[in-house]
Amino acid sequence: MIHRILRARGTSRSSTDEVASQAAVRLEDVTHEYGGRGRFGSSRERSVTALEEVTLTVDTGEIVGLQGPSGSGKSTILHAVSGLLVPTSGRVELLNTDLSERSDRERTRLRRTHVGIVFQRFHLLPSLSARANVALPLVQAGIPKPARRKRASELLESVGLADRTTHLPGELSGGERQRVAIARALASDPDVLVADEPTGELDTETGRSVLELLTTVGRNRAVLVASHDSETLAVTDRVVSLADGRIIDDGRSGRSNTPSS
């Protein structure tokens, strides 16, 4: 069933190899500071540098892990890539489009069509069924309801939840919820998938199955995974290490696929 998703994108493993050298995500000298100015222009709030001159490239077909202690800037990179955040300086390119120069509306549109986000805490809407949660990104795309339901059902089937389509998130286990979240992230067939601690709320066994799913669906996309978990980072192609907002190892110079911690 997973392969149906891959086929739906019109790609195969060989075609993925062809585009593997194309940079889907590129960060150039990205610096971001939180705070710095209080309301009414006062400077009472102390600024915090979350990212400092970060340069990073993620190619299509590449799964990149981001590791580092809390506050090192992992999540900020994911937010910048998904257009939820505009960095203080530097360029963030998504499929050769500079997000920094785009309006909030354009960044939202780009996120809707090109980026899928998986959160640590799933963030499913509690009042919607699993299928409705998965279909959510398709609503704004103007896809008719029957087509949305069909697509959502197929995605849920592909993540092994064919019998859970009408269940509410509260009726699902943690692993099932994260699978729904992954299906939702895939709804618009995105080119880039970002996952923030995707196994952080799951037990080891469930985490493994979610990782397996994530690596399978991510093979023909650019995937960024932020995690503290060595098992999660072990499934990535490359691990980028961060400390205090700086990249201390981009995973290219030394041995990749092995977390330092």
């Binding site: 509306r105 809707r112 069509t113 986000i117 963030h123 509690p126 959510l136 990104p137 704004q140 618009s188």
Partner: peptide, 16 residues
């Protein structure tokens, strides 16, 4: 607010 944030993260624009 969290639900609104989810809507934003999946690409529902502010007007939506």
């Amino acid at each position: 607010r969290r639900s609104l944030a989810v809507l934003e993260s999946v690409g529902i624009p502010r007007r939506g």
